[in-house]
């Protein structure tokens, strides 16, 4: 089975808002990460949602710390 990766989920409700971190999901690939993000965080009427593999996030401060909360 493919390894599970952690994806951070970002979303916003309207164009005036900035994207904000809403949570994270575990998924073996980008395709399932998109589905899991949509089904797990569908409590709002988002106009935009995206996922980012946690391992691709480049920390600016405290590089030894985990980049974003969750999991």
């Amino acid at each position: 089975m493919s390894a599970q990766n952690i994806y951070e989920v970002f979303a916003r409700k309207n164009h005036e808002e900035q994207l904000q971190h809403v949570g994270s999901v575990n998924a073996p690939n980008d395709e399932l990460a998109k589905v899991y993000a949509w089904t797990a965080y569908d409590e709002e009427s988002w106009i935009e949602m995206c996922v980012v593999p946690r391992q691709r996030i480049v920390p600016v401060l405290n590089p030894e710390a985990r980049p974003i909360g969750g999991n």
Binding site: M1, S2, A27, P28, N29, E31, L32, K34, V35, W38, T39
Partner: peptide
């Protein structure tokens, strides 16, 4: 479209797993 994504994602995951899967 989310159902299709879910199906394709799992199909790819299982199809690239071990022989039994």
């Amino acid at each position: 479209k989310h159902h299709v994504r879910n199906a394709q994602g799992w199909f790819r995951s299982l199809a690239t797993a071990n022989e039994q899967t």
